[in-house]
């Protein structure tokens, strides 16, 4: 008898653990729905939104894109007066999340994260979607790329780097995050304009490239400058040029490529998109809310804390940018032999 009771106790405690697991896994949903601000926020006449909205993130919890979407959800729910759940659906470079959003109705209740890396994926045809499958709603923030060297490097300025590479093709070990991705693309643009040859050493992450630069395993890294914030501030790493339009407020001493005479303005942006066929007035409503969020002091603080450049484009501007990026990136990928042979 005693044994049965014990067994029952155990089974029930296992069930409790299971429930806990599902609560943790189901995560912020329950948190947001109990938020008081949701009920007190101004209600819009138009109707939308009348029920909770889901933000789908295609990267894992805790990634920069995830933090962006969670912050955005947190501030947008106050504007829209409805709770917003954040769901991570990873897999297939975003394809899993895109497929999921495509399976949902085009009613504005499922909003998907999007970034400049999508235009690479579409150009490379590594996701089974095209730009027309989605409506790009808004971009909020962006990060540039920069050319970085160690403190003890003889390369003092961008000119030195380019001169050296011209005299010694493939003479320096240059690396950064990913193969056929954003940073390699920026280097490729520079190669095109300055006319030199270089071998690219791809790393699994920007941080990986920075430690390899610090350890002297590579000579030059092409990175998102905030990855090496400490080293840039302490002087252990020197940035030769940055791909922003004007000098970045976070790195005011670093010249832009443009200043140096190379017209390279490239930003890896983050924003949101919805399924095609979503009614225009819903998109407008979302954009109104997002515009307010972008001006929110809380949002501005988050942007500064995470060293993000403001990059506000509305639906039309973003759609045009996406088209242009896809074309440019396709040219780069073709040249680099990254496209599948047909």
């Amino acid at each position: 008898m005693k044994r049965i009771v014990q067994v029952r106790k155990l089974v029930s405690s296992l069930v409790v653990m299971l429930l806990l697991l599902s609560v943790l896994a189901g995560c912020s949903g329950s948190k947001t729905s109990t938020d008081k601000t949701a009920s007190t926020a101004p209600q819009q006449k138009s109707g939308y939104p009348t029920k909770p909205i889901t933000f789908v993130v295609w990267s894992s919890a805790g990634s920069p894109l995830d933090l962006f979407m969670r912050k955005l959800a947190d501030l947008t729910k106050k504007e829209l007066g409805q709770p917003i759940m954040v769901e991570n659906r990873t897999g297939g470079n975003g394809a899993a999340a895109m497929a999921y959003v495509n399976s949902q109705p085009a009613d504005g209740y499922t909003v998907l994260s999007t970034t400049g890396s999508l235009t690479f994926a579409i150009a490379k045809e590594s996701v089974p979607f095209k730009a027309d499958d989605f409506i790009f709603v808004k971009s909020f923030q962006a990060e540039p790329s920069a050319i970085a060297v160690r403190k003890d490097s003889p390369l003092k300025a961008l000119e030195n780097f380019i001169d050296y590479m011209k005299k010694h093709p493939n003479g320096l070990k240059i690396g950064g995050y990913a193969s056929g991705g954003f940073h390699q693309y920026v280097l490729y643009r520079l190669q095109q304009k300055a006319n030199f040859e270089a071998t690219w050493i791809p790393f699994e992450g920007g941080a990986d490239a920075v430690t390899n630069l610090l350890g002297g395993h590579i000579d030059v890294a092409v990175i998102t400058p905030s990855t090496a914030l400490n080293q840039v501030q302490s002087g252990a790493i020197r940035l030769l040029a940055i791909s922003t339009d004007k000098r970045s407020p976070y790195f005011p001493d670093v010249p832009t490529f443009k200043e140096k005479g190379y017209d390279i303005v490239e930003m890896l942006w983050r924003g949101v998109m919805v399924k095609k066929g979503t009614p225009a007035e819903l998109i407008q409503r979302l954009n109104q809310a997002f515009d307010k969020v972008a001006q929110n002091p809380d949002w501005k603080k988050y942007m500064t804390d995470y060293k993000q450049e403001e990059y506000l484009l509305d639906s039309q501007g973003l759609t045009e940018l996406v088209k242009r990026e896809i074309a440019d990136r396709r040219a780069f990928l073709e040249k680099g032999g990254f496209l599948k042979k047909k």
Binding site: L14, T90, A96
Partner: peptide, 26 residues
């Protein structure tokens, strides 16, 4: 370990399935 296998196995299976799903919600 005192729990008989026929009771424990289904519980473990459920835990693994939920666990596998919750990694990526996939």
């Amino acid at each position: 370990l005192k729990v008989p296998f026929y009771l424990l196995a289904p519980v473990v299976l459920v835990i693994t399935v939920i666990g596998a799903f919750s990694v990526n919600n996939n």
